[in-house]
Design a binder for these strands. Sequence first.
DNA 1: TCTGGGGTCCTAGGACCC
DNA 2: TCTGGGGTCCTAGGACCC
Length: 412
Amino acid sequence: MSVLALVDCNNFFVSCERVFRPGLERRPVVVLSSNDGCVISRSEEAKALGIGMGVPFFEVRALCVENRVEAISANHELYADLSRRVAAVLRRHAPDVEGYSIDESFLTFPPDGDPLARARALRAEVARWTGVPVSVGLGPSKALAKLASDKAKKAGGVLSLLEAGARERVLAATPVEQVWGIARRSAERLAAHGARTAADFAALDDALLRKTLGVGGLRLAQELRGLSVLAHSSVAPPRQSVTVSRSFGRAVGALGSLESAAAAFAARAAERARRHGLRAGALSVFVGWREDGRVLSDALSERLPPTDRTPDLVRAAKALIGRLFVEGRSYRKAGVVLGALEAAETPQAELFDDGAERRARRLEKTVDGLNAALGPGTLSFGGDRLARAWAPRSERRSPCWTTRWEDLPRVR
DNA sequence: TCTGGGGTCCTAGGACCC
DNA sequence: TCTGGGGTCCTAGGACCC
């Protein structure tokens, strides 16, 4: 039986902010999404005040003022950098780190030695080198390691579900909707069959599981029984899509502003595709607006000759958003999605081109390089700086302490 | 009145994750 | 008045084919 570990950074975004502002320790802190719209990370103190994950900020604003909760706009550049630093420490402990999300990684522990001792050592080392507190869950399968890491947060930071006895106790005491991959819909369906705990779920008949929740549900139940059926790999599978979307800072009614947004999103998406060495064979654009209190959206897609060129993608995005546009609507958000991605090989034609193509490529490479070094949006292609009525607002952002020279912390 | 059976591919939408 | 952004996988149903 191999030992799978899930390493989960506690309250990750809040913890990142605390690394550079130790004054935030032991205080209620929340991190807010774009436009300071939603709460997306909470310190334990903020959770204790009853502030839920994902709640609109305006609903808890009064509570935050009253309790002197520090509310900070999300700084994803900082979080991405600390995430890389945490991963670098993890790779010293296991050769096959699989990044599952910005704040979680799966590892396989070698069969020799005491897994609990190893987990504790790893936890201490991440804290020492990055300042980020983590929880470690151990189990014979990913779903059990994940469950263990959730429980570890209130059990000293490390918990093992490697032993059958511990597993039975924990599964029987866990409501099924706390299982990874089971949310409201699935929990309702399971309740109809009398399954309310993780143990009930794992004990259901395979054919019934297959019929009620599909293959995903069946696999999950097997994982809870201690059978490892979900693949573990340190090689990231090829990306399927690239999305850039934003809610607007205020409602937008003019086609010009909408086109400017589409152009900016397409340019950013193109940059990301190039960074991953991918070309897009399809592009879609969506817009969102409100009507009679209902949230509505519309979308259009188009196949493209595979490309990673900014001008091609910008042109396609602008054309599609023009077709979506309806006079009189107050748009609230829009987005561009690149799909049908494939590896970008150097096109043969480049060997014979007249130099214009090569120059365009070089320009793109320079812009990508500057944006990578100095922060996204430092340089952009013609036009998308104009008519930025849509630009989101975030007024409580912390500095990019680790990725921008001008934001480096100063030591007196 | 009777009206096959089996494929593939694509897309939209559902459900879930962090 | 104010409700994020970026992903994944699966399924059902339609179009089409032989």
